[in-house]
């Protein structure tokens, strides 16, 4: 992570819970993720005041209100841009973005891909429930084609995004997928995402029992093992007719991308875990380095010298 910290006091999940009443629907997958994040944050060893959660609009974007850190519940789709400003202004903060499939991939798609390509120090948690929950059930950019919803009585005709493929296409440096109900896997992926320097992108399959119940049911029940491909470094994988040992550190994202396409075939298992984890200089570190370099080579700017620069002339005494 990014925060430069004093030795952190020992904190517990309770220290990260705000006094606000959590208002998701009963049974919403968001609860599980909130719990996992609250219990996992103390392990980061960061002080509460050095953590900032930024969100956009949507059910999951209420997340920051329930964490006793700094936070901003911003506007629809714009959280990555706001987080970019925070991360660039402050190297000592751990910056998190909480977003949903509509927020990140529809209205905020542009900001998402640009944050990923810039590699700004932030961890993006994309809660994918494949539906618009807060606006009561319209299909989203990750809804399967043919989805019958309030706005698509005859079935949706859009082809959906695969968020992991999209992130890999934007050459994100950390790309992973996990599931709300698998606390252990979720925590392990989040820990790796938090430890990564640069933009970490984590898609979390999240159940919306009200408008899209059971979207990921096949991946959760006793038969889950048949439907999941749990990625590990070195795991032998087969996709696009080729077999190789999975390597998240591979710089060329082509094979990781091929892996992300696996479940385009409904009979193939859904890969979860870390697809990609590579090092590349971050935008904000480099922006700060340019400032530091300018000060080192030119000295700290003197305002009077700046104003006096260029072609100047002096009038010795008041004219009449």
């Amino acid at each position: 992570m990014t925060a430069i910290d004093l030795p952190a006091p020992t904190l517990t999940a309770k220290d990260f819970s705000s006094d606000q009443e959590v208002r998701w629907c009963p049974g919403c997958g968001d609860y599980a993720v909130l719990k996992a994040v609250q219990s996992f944050l103390p392990d980061l060893g960061l002080r509460r005041e050095n953590i900032v959660f930024v969100s956009g609009i949507g059910c999951s974007s209420r997340f920051p209100y329930y964490l006793d850190t700094y936070g901003m519940h911003s506007i629809h789709g714009r959280a990555p841009s706001i987080a970019t400003g925070i991360a660039t202004a402050r190297e000592d903060l751990s910056v998190w973005v909480v977003t949903g499939d509509g927020d990140a991939l529809s209205i905020g798609g542009n900001h998402l891909i640009h944050a990923l390509r810039r590699n700004v120090n932030m961890t993006i948690l994309l809660f994918n429930n494949r539906i618009y929950g807060l606006t009561k059930g319209q299909y989203s950019p990750t809804s399967e084609t043919g989805k019958v919803t309030k706005s698509t009585p005859l079935g949706s005709i859009d082809h959906p995004f695969n968020p992991v493929s999209l992130a890999l296409g934007a050459e994100a440096t950390f790309v992973a997928r996990t599931i709300d109900s698998d606390r252990k896997h979720l925590t392990a992926v989040l820990a790796a995402a938090a430890a990564h320097r640069g933009t970490s992108f984590v898609e979390i399959y999240q159940n919306c029992p009200i408008f899209n119940d059971g979207a990921f049911e096949a991946l959760k029940g006793p038969a889950a093992a048949d439907h999941l491909l749990r990625l590990e470094p070195g795991l032998e994988v087969t996709a696009a007719g080729r077999t190789w040992a999975h390597d998240p550190g591979e710089i060329d994202p082509s094979r990781q991308f091929a892996l992300s396409r696996l479940d385009a075939d409904p009979d193939s298992p859904v890969p979860v875990g870390i697809f990609r984890q590579v090092q590349r200089p971050t935008y904000d570190d480099q922006a700060r380095a340019q400032v530091a370099e300018a000060i080192a080579t030119r000295g700290r700017g003197e305002l009077q010298d700046l104003l006096d620069s260029g072609d100047t002339w002096t009038v010795p005494s008041d004219g009449v």
């Binding site: 990555p80 841009s81 400003g85 922006a287």
Partner: peptide, 26 residues
């Protein structure tokens, strides 16, 4: 930059102000 000024050429006008709001919050 030697005055501690950072410029961020954003992907669009919205991101430009978004980053400025984030920076102010920070």
């Amino acid at each position: 930059k030697s005055f501690g000024v950072t410029t961020f050429q954003a992907e669009d006008e919205i991101a430009a102000i978004g980053a400025a709001v984030g920076a102010s919050f920070a």
